[in-house]
């Protein structure tokens, strides 16, 4: 564990990021030490989840407020790693997207790792006007496509945002659903359709 955390931090300079190191006695350094000591694996949740990748490390060390240069480097790196669907199409079936958006399951130690992971969308966003039990951690997406249209640029922006929100906002609160392989490109297409298809209730 120790080895990995050090490695993760040591790997950051290769991105050319100047990271302020924590002083050994700082509360942040002690917090990481404490966390490393105090967890145990359970179900699918192994201890490697406690290690920071370089995006998390940068956000953790800057209180989610990296310098503009560092943020740009991270965003470019994350954008370059986005995978696109094989058929080149970015809009799928909005109905499948809706049921995926409803599901909040996946990745906890009580979830069966063999079952598909949900999109978790309604946990944080208002999407279809028919669903009133929506969260507000993220912005409302009601009328998302009606306001923006569904040009190829908007489709690509939306696809990338769901695949890896950090490609546009280095320390976004939103998970990197495609990047961590929680959602497949085909599933993300369905979510893009939920947001952009003129037939989707989102745009009615």
């Amino acid at each position: 564990m120790t080895k990995k955390l050090i490695l993760a931090v040591a790997a950051i300079p290769c991105l050319g990021l100047a990271l302020p190191a924590f002083a050994d006695a700082s509360a942040s350094a002690k917090a990481i030490e404490t966390i490393k000591r105090d967890f145990k694996p359970r179900g699918q949740a192994d201890l490697d989840r406690l290690a920071e990748d370089f995006v998390q490390a940068l956000c953790n060390r800057t209180a989610n407020n990296p310098s503009p240069e560092n943020a740009k480097r991270i965003e470019a790196d994350q954008l370059a790693k986005v995978k696109y669907p094989a058929d080149g199409k970015l809009m799928g079936d909005w109905k499948k997207g809706e049921s995926l958006a409803q599901s909040g399951r996946g990745f906890t130690w009580t979830d069966n790792p063999g079952l598909p992971v949900g999109g978790n969308c309604y946990n944080c966003h208002q999407i279809s006007p028919k669903e009133v039990a929506f969260g507000t951690v993220g912005p409302s997406l009601l009328q998302y496509g009606k306001l923006r249209g569904n040009s190829p640029e908007i489709q690509k922006y939306t696809y990338v945002k769901i695949f890896n929100a950090k490609a546009y906002n280095a320390c976004s609160d939103m998970p990197r659903f495609g990047h961590v392989d929680a959602l497949k490109p085909e599933q993300i297409k369905d979510l893009v359709a939920l947001l952009l298809d003129p037939e989707s209730p989102v745009n009615k």
Binding site: A31, I32, I35, A45, R49, L50, A51, E52, V55, Q56, C59, N60, A63, N64, F107, K166, D173, P175, R176, V180, A182
Partner: peptide, 9 residues
């Protein structure tokens, strides 16, 4: 404030 794990939470 420590973000980690598959969802960066």
């Amino acid at each position: 404030a420590y973000r980690a794990g598959p969802y960066d939470f």
